[in-house]
């Protein structure tokens, strides 16, 4: 039985392993299962990047019309991943620091790090620098931006729709390198971006 890749309606290229029924069954053999899990994680991260998805919940395995439907189910071979299986994959992702439980202290939903928080921090800093450059007449350097300004800017942004917890992680990372400062403002929290320390 030849396995082949498949392009989804959203334009995502599914790997050939996705059309193999054993991919959707947990394998008792630990070596086999770890290989399968690796492929699953890669699939999830690639797909999340493709669709800009941040949240993955165990329930997504059971809901027919979730954002993840295209990879968690395969109608062509009549297979879907079982919630238990997905939960184990999620646990592995968290242990590999490729995801984080959000909210913390539960194991039903995660933030998927298709970019690591460190990468997000760089993306954010680059975007702020670019933003300041474009609108230097409006905002002087050392401008204070609210979270809302970042997640929902007037023009497009690579950070659009980024969940606040992930944004906070990125800002913390920037703060550790002295490039940002979290301050309290009247309507919540704001961030002051500092020039890169030479």
């Amino acid at each position: 039985m030849a396995l082949s890749t498949h392009t989804t309606p959203s334009g995502f290229l599914l790997p050939s392993i996705h059309s193999a029924p054993p991919f959707f069954t947990e394998q008792p053999n630990p070596t086999t299962q770890s290989t399968a899990t690796e492929q699953w994680i890669r699939l999830i991260l690639t797909y999340a990047r493709h669709k800009k998805l941040f949240n993955l919940r165990v329930e997504d395995a059971e809901i027919a019309e979730s954002d993840w439907e295209e990879i968690l189910r395969n109608e062509r071979i009549n297979r879907r991943i079982l919630p238990n299986h997905l939960s184990n994959i999620i646990a592995t992702m968290v242990s590999k620091n490729l995801a984080a439980y959000e909210p913390p202290k539960q194991a039903r939903s995660v933030l998927v790090f298709w970019r690591l928080p460190e990468e997000w921090a760089e993306v954010l800093y680059d975007w702020v620098r670019l933003y300041q450059l474009v609108s230097c007449f409006h905002w002087p350097l050392n401008t204070i931006l609210t979270f809302y300004d970042i997640t929902d800017p007037p023009s497009g942004s690579p950070l659009g729709n980024i969940p606040v917890p992930l944004l906070r992680r990125a800002i913390v990372i920037l703060g550790k390198t002295g490039r940002s400062q979290t301050i309290a403002i009247t309507d919540g929290e704001g961030v002051r971006f500092l020039p890169r320390a030479k």
């Binding site: 890749t5 599914l14 790997p15 050939s16 290989t35 699939l43 690639t46």
Partner: peptide, 14 residues
């Protein structure tokens, strides 16, 4: 099934 995972190389979306 034969072990479909053994020696599998990613051929999905990069």
């Amino acid at each position: 099934w034969g072990n479909v995972f053994h020696g599998y190389m990613w051929d999905g979306q990069e």
